[in-house]
Each structure stands twice: as C-alpha cells, then as structure tokens.
Write a protein that binds this DNA or RNA. Structure first.
Lengths: 163, 163
DNA sequence: CGATATTGCTCAGTATGCTGACTATCAGTA
DNA sequence: TACTGATAGTCAGCATACTGAGCAATATCG
C-alpha cells in the first residue's frame, strides 16, 4: 500500500455497492470459498459444480451430458471437463448409450455414492455459513428474490436451466 | 435428449433451487451474460472485471495493483492479467512507482476515459435488465440482503473488500 | 546497522465458464 | 431412400479465479 496516494474519492459515478452485478459476483465468490473450505475440511476435494453434477447423476441414473447440463444450468462445453474429472476420481462412469451413439450415459459409482453421503453435511454447513449475516427470515427472502430474478433471466445466459 | 430415460425423481436430497450457493452462481451467470451482451451491443469488448478496474483506476489515479484489487475485491493474481489486457487495449498505463519500486502506478488514458464514458449507459442498462423480474422495491431489498450477507462473509474469501 | 518480517507483484498450475467450430449421429421429410 | 436440419459431444482459444511459490524491495525491530 502506497501511503502517499491521495485519499480515495467518495463520489464515484456509481459505487460498486450499488451495482447488482458486483454484488452478485461478491456473493458467489464468498459462496465458492465457503464451499471449498467446508468440503476441504471434511477431507474431500470436490468443487461446487462437481458436487452438483454428482448429486444430479445420482438422482437421475443414466442421464446424458446435455440433460445433466440443463438440469444444473451449465454450458455443455464446461460439463465435458467436469465429467472428465469426476470419472478420473472414480466417482462416476461414462459409457456410450446403446440407444443413441452420440450420447454418453452417466452413472454414479459406489465410491461416488459414499463420497456424496459423507460430503453432504459439509455442503449443508456451507449453505448456512454463507447466509450467516442474515436472519432465517432474511435468508428465505434473499433466496426468494434470487429465484425470482433468475427465473426472469433464465434465457439470457447460454446455459439456461432446463427441467 | 434421450427419450427413454426414466422420469426425473422429484425428491432429491436437496433441490438445487434451495441452495443459496446454486442461486448465487445462477444469478452471477446471468449478470455476466447480460453485461457482456449489453456492452457488446454498444460496440465494446470489456468484461465486468475490466470495467470495474477501469472505473476504479479513473476514480483513484495512480493507485497500485494491490489497492485496486482490494477496492474491487479481486485476488491480486487475477488483477495482474486483467491489467495486462487493459494496457494491451490502450485504456490504462502501468508504470513503476517512484516511491516504491515494487509497486506499479495505474493511470487511465484518454482513450480509457472515452471508452468509460461511452460504455456507462450500457453498464447501467445491464444492471436494470438483470433485475427485470423484480419490482423496484424488490430489487432494492435484494441488494440490501446481498450487501448484508457479503459484509458478514467478507473475510471468508481470499480477496476480501478493502476500503 | 543488520537480521527478519512483510509487502507488491509475477508465475505455474488447475478449474471454471464462455464463444465458435467441428464431427458423428439421429430425426424428419420430400 | 436421400437430403436436410437438428442434436450430442468434443475441441481450441480466451478470460476469469483460485492456490502456492518465488523474487525483489521495503518496513520493522533488536
């Protein structure tokens, strides 16, 4: 820190804190950090998207990658790498679909099931920690407003949610 | 889409939509897409972090990279690359500080100033669009709750806000 | 003053996330 | 059946973001 720099202006055109986009990024940044810390402390090396993919594959055995991507709102090009790493870790299996030779069927392994079970408490703790500044009522309201804003903007990103 | 996949279970352990972390990522995903679309339509090729850095450099001439990183809550290792690209585009200048030879002083160029001026309406439009599902009152409430949650979690990420 | 700790910055490595392009395959239709 | 369009997946390229390490320079303290 350079001590002799002039005092910061307080009247920027628009304060960062007034920008929904900035707040969105900050909240997400904290959410990811908390997730990785909690899951790491529990002894696992899983990222948020890897967890989401694993849980969704468990709940929908045999689904293909595009469907998976739609269910968790990730781009299919991103999912390719995520799946690679989950396979690498032995948590899922990827095999050609007998019905559609373009598609790959995804299946959770026993090890994946075990990891998911052990990791869930850490994931839930992370969700609480990232809302720790809010009352229960405020946390609910934040989630309601986020869901509403997201629903209205669903089609605006390349990877909309597909149910 | 494989048509013969079994119907999706509705009773996952925890629906994605109930996870604050998932909602945070989705909202941020939409926010970035909207930002890039609006700014791109205005004829500019600037990312959200590049815009934030540019605006902050303009408001605080001569600041160093670590201070900049703290003001917009980015990791200093990320800022290095962002600054590289802003310099590359001719929007800012980076020069050695005469007071601290470790530090680099950042200054906006005339071209950077012009770009910032022309781009601001698009940035403001983007902020409105990402909240388009909410009433004005709800948008305010969402921002208040985000600010509150972020303040409580500020120190939980590697790149906390430093004012 | 000199040893030590701290700070500013960069880099290598990894993982998201995106755009755009491409291949292989499937589906619908003339 | 042959043609055309759509779809599943991958890839190259780029830009965040992070961890951890390292270098150079500054600050601190005995």
């Amino acid at each position: 820190m350079i001590r002799t720099v002039p005092a910061l202006k307080e009247n920027s055109v628009k304060d960062n804190n007034d920008m929904p986009g900035h707040l969105a990024r900050r909240f997400q940044q904290i959410a990811v950090a908390v997730f990785l810390a909690e899951v790491g402390d529990a002894g696992f090396d899983l990222t948020p998207v890897q967890y989401a993919a694993l849980a969704t594959i468990k709940a929908n055995p045999g689904l293909d990658q595009v469907t998976l991507a739609g269910l968790i709102a990730y781009d299919r090009t991103t999912i390719t790498g995520v799946i690679d790493r989950l396979v690498q870790k032995g948590l899922i299996e990827r095999r050609a679909s007998p019905r559609d030779r373009r598609a790959r069927e995804l299946e959770i392994t026993d090890e994946g099931r075990r990891a998911l079970r052990k990791i869930t408490p850490a994931v839930e703790a992370a969700q609480r920690i990232m809302l720790r500044g809010l009352s229960a009522k405020e946390g609910e309201e934040l989630m309601r407003l986020l869901r509403k804003a997201i629903a209205a903007g669903n089609e605006l990103s390349r990877a909309p949610l597909r149910e």
